[in-house]
Design a binder for these strands. Structure first.
Length: 173
DNA sequence: GAAGAGTTGTACT
DNA sequence: AGTACAACTCTTC
């Protein structure tokens, strides 16, 4: 058997929108941001989802945690196992570091780079977040510029990130 | 406060 | 292997 690695996916609705997740035996391979429809969510996790089979039960844990998170509950998304085998060491490190950021807290790209190995790889750290395929599971929205401002974040994701931060901050209070 | 230079990692040719 | 690109940060005007 070869080969084709059995991957499964699920798509469900949260308070923030539809979220799709694709995973393997090792954990979640890909997760989408909350979208306006199941179609959009699934489209966001292509082409990985194309090889996966719909298996809601398999992602019951992920679904529960993500749903709770989007509902504003202070759940620990770090409990969701992620599959980073195909990820380069630097990215993996950066994501791990990102996941370790406490809810409601923020860190700079410089901090991420340092955790990932090279303090000067700030831009590389930015790339790691930009290519983050584990939305929500890797809380890249907690990573902001050293000056405290949200650097870049390219586009439509900014409002959502801002909202997530506000939500997490609210949990702290 | 705005503009320019410097560094590192990844993807593509 | 070399080139181009990127969600950065620091220095300087």
């Amino acid at each position: 058997m070869t080969a084709v690695e059995r991957t499964t996916y699920d798509v469900f609705e949260t308070d923030l929108g539809w979220v799709a997740v694709v995973g393997s035996e090792h954990g979640v391979l890909r997760a989408s941001l909350p979208e306006s429809s199941p179609e959009a969510a699934l489209d966001a996790v292509q082409p990985e989802v194309g090889l996966a089979k719909h298996d809601p039960e398999r992602h019951a844990d992920s679904r529960m945690l993500i749903t709770a998170y989007c509902a504003g509950e202070p759940v620990n998304l770090g409990d969701v196992p992620i599959d980073t085998r195909r990820i380069s060491p630097f990215f993996k490190k950066a994501w791990e570091a990102c996941r370790s950021i406490p809810s409601g807290e923020t860190r700079s790209y410089r901090w991420l780079a340092e955790q990932a190995g090279n303090v000067r790889a700030t831009r590389g750290a930015g790339q790691a977040m930009a290519r983050n395929k584990l939305a929500l599971l890797v809380p890249c929205h907690r990573v902001i510029g050293s000056s405290g401002a949200l650097h870049g974040f390219g586009g439509a994701g900014l409002p959502l990130k801002s909202r997530l931060l506000a939500m997490e901050s609210r949990n702290q209070h």
